[in-house]
Amino acid sequence: MSAWVWFFQLIQGVMALLLAPLLMGWMAYCRARFQHRRPSSLWQPLRQWIKLFHKEVVLAELASPLFRVTPYALFGILALTAGLVPMVLTDLPLSGAVDVIALAGLLSLARVILALAAMDVGTAFGSLGARREMLVAFLAEPALLMVIFASASLNASTSLSKMAATTLDRGFYLYPSLAFSGVAFLLVLLAENGRIPVDNPETHLELTMIHEAMILEYSGRHLALIEWANALKMLVYFSLGMVLFFPFGLSRGGSGWEIALSFIGFIIKLLIFGVALAILETVSAKQRLFRVPEYLGGAFLLAVLAILLHDLLGT
């Protein structure tokens, strides 16, 4: 049994690496469809990155070692987090190493490293992007922690597997507090992944960009690694959301069939999520940057309200 579990741990890591570009491709596909454009292939992101890997890296003259280490560090950290969040099985041998708070910490570690690297070359856009990223971060991070707090109060645990298992045991149950923190989580997810109301992942327009501004100086394999890491981050957020709010479909081990079934379940959830996000991005417009604090303040408030509701309704 033990060997199997380690095997699944490994499988999940590899699966996450592959699923992340596919998720990106799927979202681009859906968005193109909704906007009446001709969609590109699902494999397009992966193809693009492989092309980038083959290219030579052009380093800015001033770039320090920090700048060069960052893409690897970023990719390593995010691949690690993607390997640790339960996606198919509730319990993985290594998922005890980080609980959900430590997971949030890892995500912010990745962000801080990237922001520092963006400031390294000393260009106008780099520091602008870093500043905006940190602005989003210092508002989104407490909101995320409050979301986690609400779920943790409900499940009396911050361990990822335990939270998922408790919710599974309980069966389907309408929790107002979970509903609130779920919405808050969605808002945070959009902000942290640079999606539409906060940032536009598709433009290089000075007024809108946050994430793109930070990675302007990167090229070749460095750029590919960072973009891949970014896709992994989306996947991590998605699976974290599933663990916190909708772990149904996760398997607790058992037979191979069950695991295969829960894997299919995960894929279906991922597909639905992609469609939903694409709809959301199609119908909404990007906000002004200085509306972002209010947007994320709203997420924070929702999460705090969720905790209060949890106490009040006694559920």
């Binding site: 800015a60 950290i77 690690l80």
Partner: peptide
């Protein structure tokens, strides 16, 4: 983390190449 970073580095170098060139910063 250390393993992840090192494996990434090793994997990228192994599969592709380690070429780079210095140039002035682009900055759009």
């Amino acid at each position: 983390i250390a393993m992840g970073v090192l494996m990434t580095w090793w994997g990228v170098r192994r599969t592709f190449h380690g070429r780079y060139r210095r140039a002035p910063a682009w900055d759009c």
